[in-house]
Design a protein around this nucleic acid. Sequence first.
DNA 1: TCTGGGGTCCTAGGACCC
DNA 2: TCTGGGGTCCTAGGACCC
Length: 424
Amino acid sequence: MKKVFALVDCNNFYASCERLFRPELRDQPIVVLSNNDGCVIARSNEAKALGISMGAPYFKTKDLLARHNVHVFSSNYALYGDLSQRVMTILQQMEPEVQIYSIDEAFVSLPYTPGNSQTGYASYLQEKIWQCVGIPVSIGIGPTKTLAKLAAKIAKRDPLCGGAFDLTDNPWLDQLLAAFGVQDVWGIGRQAARKLRGRGIMTAWDLRDADDAWLRKRLTVTGLRTALELRGISCQPLDNAPPARKSIISSKSFGRPISTLSDMKEAVVTYLSTAAEKLRKQGSAAEAIQVFISTNTFNPRQAQHVQGMTASLPGPSAYTPHLLKAALHCLDSIFRPGYQYKKAGVMLAGIVPAHQQQMNMFAPLDTERHDLMRAVDRTNQKWGRQTLQVATAGFAKPWQMAQSRKSPAYTTNWSELPVVNTCP
DNA sequence: TCTGGGGTCCTAGGACCC
DNA sequence: TCTGGGGTCCTAGGACCC
């Protein structure tokens, strides 16, 4: 049976999450900040209307926000992650083929019925998610993922659509494509858009009909695929069982600069523990680990040091102390006293399934260690992050990121549940 | 004073082999 | 003096995404 793609996209997701437990903020402008309250990463429609731009540094836009009484939140990933999971669960209960694409988007495969728009069914999905989770979504439908993404933009932009739009068999397709600039097409970033415009390819409509050989040569196969998808030829199938991650990164800026090796060790060990937990969660082991540290590269008056180092493990491992040893070895080699470091990170690479590990005669068997790690992960899942941790991760962690305006973890922490006052 | 974090895919070019 | 051709594998870096 022929299928079409539906893209389900949560509207202003982080802002909608914050609003969910603060109904008095409905119709109020809201922004959500990145880690360390660095810059604006989500805006409610009201905040967008005020001209607050995406990615704007907080310190530069603070006055504007205050002037318009914008409600400002630090990012609360425990909340967003949990609500995202609830939305995805609804979709998976209703449809057999769902690809979770990001924290706030999913592709769903729907059966195609000629001459019949799918928007009615889309509205039903929307209603269901609103009713069960309380998050508003827009839905775009098309014969390819790229067209579904464009349809979702139309659904969001035009209030007359009621939040759902179908580009399949749409008689106005050419006109609609001509109304989008190439940079609005999924997969066309700044560089590609520049090249395209240089050749006079200005709109999605131009891109669809561009020369294949030229696209292949200048924008590689990915650019060619995008054009084919605009023609309705699907090049990106729905993937409802995404493979395990090939690399896992944990990195963060610090709340205040770090200048001593002992503080830096705490940070690296903390980040490594997070990455290792993710590694075990997907049932994998890593063969290599990379550690990188960096001063504040935005500050031109400061002495800069940016360096990374990769170490191979004797065999693939998911055992935190083994990974730790390699990570600290890297850190000892790259750390230089006398710099004000602002950021560090850990990347696990060479990821293989834990049960297919190549045996290594010099590496010990991991059964007991596996049990130990499982106990640690379960404890932390039940009682909260860092309930059990390696002592070198530190306790006070004065370098930890600043989040001065974080809302409670309403749905994932017993002590932060919302309180309902039943009598005055 | 203050500028996020975590991924994927693709290509070019070097190392190495026969 | 002259100095092949073809293949694989790996890595770094660019571009893009949310």
